[in-house]
Amino acid sequence: MRLIINGETRELEGIESIKDMLDSLGVDHQTVAVMVNGEIIGRADFVSRPVQDHDAIEIVRFVGGG
């Protein structure tokens, strides 16, 4: 499946949900927020929310800032 993640095109195989995608990328679920095609997905929905070919996904986390 081809996804656009944080502006980069990524080929990920064998994934169905946001949880699968995060696992495949090696990203810790606890510290991120996710947006799919402009829609914010709550952490509780990571398992149930499917991802589809060509979805545009943003995965963000907290960093230092003022």
Binding site: N6, A33, E58, I59, V60, R61, G65
Partner: peptide
């Protein structure tokens, strides 16, 4: 404390 939100470095 304030924090910013940025893309995860893939």
């Amino acid at each position: 404390v304030t924090v910013a939100l940025r893309r995860v470095n893939l």
